[in-house]
Write a protein that binds this DNA or RNA. Structure first.
Lengths: 226, 226
DNA sequence: TTTTGTTTGTAACATTTGTTACATTTATGG
DNA sequence: CCATAAATGTAACAAATGTTACAAACAAAA
């Protein structure tokens, strides 16, 4: 039995013995994939829970015209597409393949239901997993709902201040390039937006450190959402 | 017992008797709200499942500066914030209030867990509800990821054709105003985008009817995502 | 230190979208 | 049928962002 199984958030709060017993009570299997091998195509029905135990897996969105668009990577010991096992349209939204040699634990939908019946802890963990996913996407969506770049930036800075809790002194752990990517804009545009806030006397910049000076104004800018 | 309870998707596949028995086995209550009354504030911990049985409920997002931003309305017999009952950050993302006099069925989180234990059908229904929500948001996110208006429009038209399945003949059930709102752009901008596709010979317009002529080009436009 | 590559600042210009305004068409009620 | 309101087409201009290019600053390695 692979060691990573015991670290999966889905089995959080269960002892090793309990996990073993649970898994022995249902049908499930290991599956190995070689580098680059296809795991599931976008649109394919998702009828099993898959947990990455070794290696790495990526999801790619393929466009109407066949161009590859976006990538999300999943590392052990995380499950894969939890929010697409149930629901009306339970199909993979992306094409999934192994980045490196990968080991998956595959648990058929029926077995997942059995597990939820046999263990309330697993049930709660599974609900948490889906909910976390929904909440994560929901946050992203809210972020994108800010129409202007200034709005996104202001929102981001305020959020970062909440997280870092350094009283208006924020350290950017990402490069401008990465931030621009996150915001969905070009890098020079982000530079401009930062410069503008600086010139307006709302923030002060020292390299990767930013200090918020005028809170009221910053919050007002975050205002314009659409 | 309110009639709408038997129509809730969460009790789909259960007989009236089964639903009655189930609900009598757990703690839950009705709650009435008058017009405009606050049901839950954004940020408040969500520790009960709420089902709208009568009336109407709205969710409003409130901004850093206190301005109201977006509204989503929920009608009977739908549940409220299913994706925020579990998960790490199980707090209401929006402020919820009653639009008209409203009756809610409130089922505490613990009772929900009991229900899932007592009825596999309810369990599956609940999983479906959360998953549907996640899938819905996920789709919206993918939609917003198209950077250009032309891209969004192209994506929308192709999607509509898939849904309506009329071989490239699409009927718009929404006004341009509503579509523009959906796309997050101004109405004249949407008009321009449509006109452009028209002038390029990619689509033909007859009032609310649109016909796709050049599929390849349309798909190529949807290509530009970011 | 020098060298090299990465990150950042900034400018000029192109493109896209927003805003406003108004004419035209299309529904709707009387 | 007319009268009115709503929805749509379109133009002119403003504002925001993308694109490209290059220089300056910084970091890591030789």
């Amino acid at each position: 039995m692979n060691e990573e199984i015991f670290n999966t958030p889905l089995f959080n709060g269960l002892t090793r013995e309990e996990i073993k017993t649970l898994l022995e009570s249902v049908v499930c299997q290991y599956r190995r994939y070689s580098e680059g091998q296809l795991i599931a195509s976008a649109g394919e029905v998702c009828n099993a829970l898959q947990i990455v135990l070794k290696g790495r897996v990526k999801g790619e969105m393929i466009d109407f015209s066949g161009k590859v668009l976006k990538i999300e990577e999943i590392y052990p010991p995380k499950p894969l597409a939890v929010a697409f096992l149930f629901g009306q349209n339970n199909r993979y939204p992306v094409t999934v393949s192994a980045v490196v040699p990968t080991l998956l634990l595959v648990i058929p939908k029926k077995s997942v239901v059995s597990l939820m019946h046999n263990s309330e802890i697993f049930l709660i963990n599974f609900l948490n997993a889906i909910s976390n996913r929904a909440q994560f996407i929901s946050g992203k969506l809210r972020f994108l709902s800010f129409k202007t770049l200034q709005g996104k930036l202001a929102h981001f800075l305020i959020e970062q201040d909440n997280i870092q809790n350094k009283n208006g002194r924020i350290f950017l752990s990402k490069t401008h390039e990465e931030l621009a990517e996150l915001f969905g804009v070009a890098r020079p545009s982000l530079s401009r937006a930062i410069r503008k806030l600086h010139h307006q006397g709302i923030i002060r910049c020292f390299g990767k450190n930013i200090e918020i000076i005028n809170w009221d104004e910053l919050k007002n800018i975050g205002n314009k959402t659409g």
